[in-house]
Design a protein around this nucleic acid. Structure first.
Length: 878
RNA sequence: GGGUGCGUAGCUCAGUGGGAGAGCACUGCCUUCACACGGCAGGGGUCGCUGGUUCAAUCCCAGCCGCACCCA
């Protein structure tokens, strides 16, 4: 036993224990013969630093892993980082900008080399921060999505999916990010409402017989208009269909066509069609018989106006930025007298989630994954329950997305990432192969090949995380043991990005689900309920909280606040409260130390005869059951709550107080045994939540043959002792009611009282005798007398069948005591009346569950008796 | 427009078909030999609104109001 410092200083113990665990390999002890338990960590961006969401996500995972490790399982928590294509490339490009350089000043190889350098220098920040949080990951197998092995896996997946017909190259509209100059997937587009306009143009008919009015929110796209569409049933335009319109500015002749897409209710009912620059129009264009390759394109990669293939855009517009072009087009149309009207209108505008620039639908060749086919199995597995989504409410969202899933654009026009393993021959033939040699073999000798310039979407590779981290495609032992993973914990915000894709890829490539349970937690919000964001400046730094309150307190906060399905609002006072909780435990341990209470040596509860010891063992069992259930159900809040209240309310507030008077008597040794055992159970039960303080106290309490991180989960082999529970329950009520009376009657808390008991049963008299020491010390009741209490003013406290009388002649205010009793009587009578009403209702007695009726009757009897005793007490006071 | 979730004590949140709980904050008392990051006691809620089902609704159903988020 090492004496604990008076003050608990989290910082002093955290780094020490973390280093010890990691050096000793305790995060992954050798347990090849044990049942495996596996979690993979959502790989944070290598560019990232720990934010509060990571703190939540990783705390929850660590709780599960530490718990499972203590259950004796071969618990593996896979960890690593994600190369985060766009984000990382942006970081390095920004650094180059600071030195007046840009990416294109370098060759691709040179630039990638610079990214690797950056990764070596600062890529480890977040992994260090995860350590500060106390996460017990298997660092010995830390992975990175750009590692050689992982890259091989990514390449193989691409080739396999291509060979299976699940990846293909296609020319269609993509979401083009003109800021980053890459395609992005539809998930990476954020739509938001902005104030815009609805411009009404008049398009003259070719034959001079009139004009047709069209309206648009994006006037500049008229430079690439290829048709005007009206609804087939719209009689207003029936005789115009088939005629041509001569477009203003370009003079292009385009047909008036019919298509269901035209909404007769909207504007004039006629709509301009720009297949190359609008997703709806693309479909209309295809229906009208335009092939994608024929669709006119008027924008370059920077979203500046470029010449269409028909050469009809006036020179003055070429090279203009899209927003300048918008103004210019409106100006020109207005000048031609064809601008009919301009309406203000709120329009939904797509933005790139990284670049925050307006996304442009753009016609390009990209690689697509046939997500619709891959979505079939995941949906089946969720329906069958083989994958359990927790909380269940997310299933609907999951199905809704999966059922309407679009082809997944996976190519990105970046340099940093997994380069697409596709080679093109001189005439554009495609050879998809693991490497150039294979591609050449496919192409045949003499064909000169160039590799696709693009890289893959980062999520394409992170979707392989549950198995590629375990060595896939090699059939490693780890892979066999740890796939499928048990649980996957992630924020709901990456349900589609990542979770669903793991299911698709895992099921297709491994033939088995990637995990059996998918637990989705919410967001951590700022104290005012707003989403935290760097731009708003309302982020809370978890490391700052750790500095201030300790990692254990932050972790406990995260667990306690994590009720399934709700976002967590940051509440620093609550983190402080859990720091106080840690201090409370610390001080309880100090008390134990100073009373010769030390480490226990048995897993089973010690034999005990004293009611207080039998009671606390029962309470330990009850708490353990509640904790086990909560952990099984993934109710982190319930788990935290169970331990918290046991430690504070039961162990500290009552048990330790109640054994104080025993410590120099015959029961002392038994109390030491039991107290030491209970404290050990507390440390073990609390360890998944508060790993640092529990490890510190574990060792401080005595010599241990192993660390708590690998200790066994409690198994008390004891039952709840109803008799002891009843006696200590009675004792607590008696002391509690006495204290209440004292406080209300302004009796000095320290005053030692004599109590006269009336109407007590033999059993109660025995209890009074047995608990006399506790009553004296904790309740400040020095003497219990069965003599008739002296006349005069007295406080009267009914507990069960007996009434306890505190003669307080001259000490208390008689009126105050009368008022106190009257208030209690009123409360009791109110309850009696309410129960009366219920019981006198024949419907209730007939139809209610028998237990409910029994309980009502019992409550009625009890409350009636209590009211009677209070009435008697009042009468005695006159 | 479609969907989801939420609305419970001043604040942050649990909760269940049988009469409402926690933490913090608040009030009073206590420097009692583990702990003032503490102890003891206490006040505080027509459980968003309106109907319905039920012997019984904060809980189930419907509608409404308000607040978030997702999809189009």
């Amino acid at each position: 036993m090492t004496e604990l410092p008076k003050h608990f200083d989290p910082a002093a113990i955290e780094t020490r224990w973390y280093g010890h665990w990691e050096e000793e390999g305790l995060f992954r002890p050798e347990r090849d013969d044990c049942e495996p338990f596996t979690i993979v960590n959502p790989p944070p961006n290598v560019t990232g630093s720990l934010h509060i969401g990571h703190a939540l996500d990783n705390t929850l995972q660590d709780i599960l892993v530490r718990h499972q490790r203590m259950l004796g399982k071969d618990a593996l928590w896979v960890v690593g980082t994600d190369h985060a294509g766009i984000a990382t490339q942006m970081v390095v490009e920004r650094q180059l900008n600071e030195q007046q350089q840009k990416r294109t000043d370098f060759s691709r190889e040179e630039f990638i080399e610079k990214v690797w350098q950056w990764k070596e220098e600062s890529g480890g920040e977040i992994t260090g921060q995860l350590r500060r949080l106390g996460c017990s990951m298997d660092w010995s197998n830390e992975r990175f999505t750009m590692d050689e092995g992982f890259t091989k896996a990514v390449t193989k997946v691409f080739v396999d999916l291509y060979n299976d017909g699940l990846i293909y190259r296609d020319k269609r509209l993509v979401n083009w990010d003109p800021g980053l100059k890459t395609a992005i997937s539809d998930l990476e587009v954020e739509n938001s409402e902005t104030n815009g306009h609805f411009w009404h143009f008049s398009y003259p008919l070719e034959d001079g017989s009139g004009a047709i009015s069209v309206a648009t929110t994006r006037p500049e796209t008229m430079l690439a208009d290829m048709a005007v569409a009206v609804h087939p049933s719209d009689e207003r335009y029936a005789d115009m269909v088939g005629k041509n319109v001569r477009l203003p500015i370009t003079g292009r002749l385009v047909p008036i066509i019919t298509d269901d897409h035209a909404d007769p209710e909207l504007g004039s009912g006629a709509v301009k069609i720009t297949p190359g620059h609008d997703f709806n129009d693309f479909d209309v264009g295809k229906r009208a018989g335009f092939k994608p390759a024929e669709m006119l394109n008027m924008l370059d990669a920077d979203a500046k106006v470029c010449q269409t293939t028909d050469g009809l855009i006036p020179d003055e517009l070429i090279g203009m930025d899209r927003f300048d072009a918008r103004k210019k087009v409106v100006e020109l149309i207005d000048a031609a007298g064809l601008l009919e009207q301009v309406e203000d209108r709120v329009i939904v505008t797509p933005y790139g989630d990284r670049s925050n620039v307006v996304i442009e639908p753009w016609l390009t060749d990209q690689w697509y994954v046939d997500a619709e086919k891959l979505a079939v199995e995941p949906m089946a597995k969720v329906r069958s329950g083989e994958i359990d989504i927790v909380p269940k409410s997310w299933e609907k969202t999951f199905f809704n997305w999966m059922e309407n899933i679009q082809p997944w654009c996976v190519s990105r026009q970046l340099w940093w990432g997994h380069r697409i393993p596709a080679w093109y021959g001189d005439n554009g033939e495609v050879y998809v192969a693991a490497d150039e040699v294979e591609a050449q073999a496919k192409a045949g000798e003499g064909v000169s090949l160039t590799q696709d310039e693009d890289v893959l979407d980062t999520w394409f590779s992170s979707g392989l995380w549950p198995f590629a981290t375990l060595g896939w495609p090699e059939e490693t032992d780890d892979l066999k043991r740890h796939y499928p993973n048990n649980v996957l914990i992630s924020g709901f915000d990456i349900l589609f990005f990542w979770d669903a894709r793991m299911m698709m890829q895992g099921l297709h490539l491994m033939g088995e689900v990637p995990f059996h349970t998918l637990y989705l937690h919410g967001l951590v919000r700022a104290a005012d309920g707003q989403k935290m964001s760097k731009s708003k400046g309302n982020t809370v730094d978890p490391l700052g909280l750790i500095d201030q309150y300790g990692a254990d307190a932050l972790r406990f906060f995260m667990a306690a606040m994590e009720s399934q399905g709700r976002d967590i609002k940051m509440d620093e006072k609550r983190v402080e409260g859990y720091r106080n909780f840690a201090t409370k435990l610390w001080n309880a341990a100090r008390f134990c130390q100073s009373n010769g209470i030390g480490a226990s040596t048995t897993l089973a509860a010690p034999k005990a005869t004293l009611p207080v010891n039998r009671w606390i063992i029962s309470e330990t069992v009850t708490t353990l059951n509640a904790l086990n259930k909560a952990l099984d159900d993934l109710r982190f809040d319930g788990a935290a709550d169970a331990v918290y209240h046991f430690v504070w309310d039961k162990f500290c507030d009552w048990y330790l107080e109640l054994i104080k008077p025993e410590m120099d008597g015959d029961g002392a040794e038994e109390c030491r045994q039991v107290a030491g055992w209970v404290l050990d159970q507390i440390l073990v039960m609390l360890h998944p939540f508060m790993p640092f303080i529990t490890e510190e106290l574990w060792h401080a309490m005595g010599e241990r043959s192993y660390d708590i991180i690998v200790a066994k989960w409690p198994n008390p082999r004891a039952d709840v002792d109803a008799e002891a529970a009843s006696e200590i329950g009675w004792l607590i009520k008696l002391i509690g009611d006495t204290r209440t009376a004292r406080a209300e009657l302004n009796i000095p808390p320290g005053a030692k009282l004599t109590v006269h008991v009336r109407d007590a049963s033999d059993g109660t008299l025995e209890r009074l005798e047995r608990q006399s020491a506790a009553l004296a010390r904790v309740g400040r009741i020095e003497n219990v007398s069965t003599d008739v209490p002296p006349e005069g003013s007295a406080a009267q406290i009914p507990v069960d069948e007996a009434t306890y009388v505190l003669p307080l002649e001259g000490v208390i205010d008689l009126d105050a005591e009368k008022a106190r009793l009257a208030k209690a009587l009123e409360a009791a009578e109110k309850e009696v009346a309410s129960l009366d009403k219920r019981l006198s209702n024949p419907q209730f007695v007939e139809k209610a569950k028998p237990e409910a009726v029994d309980k009502a009757r019992a409550d009625h009897a009890e409350k009636t008796a209590e009211a009677e005793r209070l009435r008697a007490a009042l009468e005695r006071l006159g």
